[in-house]
Design a protein around this nucleic acid. Structure first.
Lengths: 200, 200
DNA sequence: ACCTGAACACCGTTCAAGT
DNA sequence: ACCTGAACACCGTTCAAGT
């Protein structure tokens, strides 16, 4: 975040800078602390400059959310590639880790009313991509005989619910697990579920 | 919501009225639409009358949240008493139904940063009570030989995560299930998990 | 005790005007 | 095109004053 001299134009990639600044505030202080005026000020830009790049505040949040889904996707994909304990278990750990490392960002991605974000095709696409890798992995695990038969979409939804629940509750506190315990808990939960999904 | 003549005192249970009005706005229009001024106006009361009963807006939301946990608890408890398909499965359905029937209320209960609500003992107590009935049920199902042995607290956490994930994702849309499908999905998910939890 | 209006320090957003 | 300050219609919250 570099200041620039007053009166000069930004003339860099202001959109990128706004996105990074917004994500930074969200990460450090939470969504409630995010104000368009504050972000502008931080970049040495007027409070309305933002409207050249985003329709409104929701639009900004949708873009931040969209980038969150891209990060989530790539971290889950990396976990699958480097998997040591089975792809589904390691993907689950990566998902939960992302949530606990970026709790405010995660809340922006999932904490809003569905309609708020439905009209952002980019966001919808990236969130579907993040789910897609799970469905795909379930399918290939079935074909490899490591998972019981059944509609892969349904099995994926069940697994996603479990992992998402751990992420949400672990974050919100009620699970009362610290960051060292959470990995182990996630693995236990995944294995418990997988035992029930083992081939007969 | 009855209007009263201008200038007169409220002199009823204003706290109760404020709580109900707030919950009503949250239910119908979402949390973002909740303003202290609007609630006061709806009750024919000045915009600062509320501060005689609540410290600030967060305090109001904590109280609304607390009542949400009480409702959730009693609906889950009722489902256990009237259970036909096993207590855990029917409790799961009740939990998810509550979330989908009161999505905005549910988001207020779970969607905030943990620290926001930690300092409200009433809220903490009621949310723990809601979790307590699950731990207790897991424990009694184990004693009845219908669940495999193990730390009941851990098994309860796993089950809670699954059910909470369904509630959150079902609500947010990504699960893409309508209210008729969600019951069936919840039952399937619970059974899938329970198969893995069956005694050996 | 309980309630009031006025005032303060903020917001997001619009818009005519500048370069 | 991109950026600006002024203005508008809101917020939550504080506070001295009323009954």
């Amino acid at each position: 975040v570099t200041k620039k001299k007053r009166g000069a134009y930004h003339h860099g990639d202001l959109r990128r800078a706004l996105l990074d600044a917004a994500a930074g505030v969200i990460h450090k202080e939470g969504v409630d602390a995010l104000t368009l005026r504050g972000v502008g000020q931080k970049l040495g830009v007027s409070r309305t400059a933002l409207y050249r790049h985003f329709e409104d505040k929701t639009d900004l949040l949708a873009a931040v959310s969209s980038e969150g889904f891209q990060t989530l996707y790539s971290e889950v994909a990396a976990a699958r590639s480097a998997s040591r304990n089975g792809p589904l278990e390691d993907m689950a750990v990566a998902y939960v880790r992302f949530a606990l490392t970026n709790p405010s960002h995660f809340r922006v991605m999932f904490g809003r009313a569905p309609d708020d974000f439905a009209r952002y095709p980019d966001l919808v696409r990236h969130s579907q991509q993040a789910f897609g890798i799970l469905v795909e992995t379930v399918s290939s695990e079935q074909q490899a005989g490591r998972l019981k038969a059944g509609e892969p979409l349904e099995l994926a939804r069940i697994l996603w619910s479990l992992v998402h629940g751990i992420a949400t509750l672990g974050m919100a506190g009620p699970l009362k697990l610290n960051s060292e315990q959470i990995d182990g808990f996630t693995r236990t939960a995944a294995r418990t579920m997988l035992d029930g999904l083992a081939p007969v």
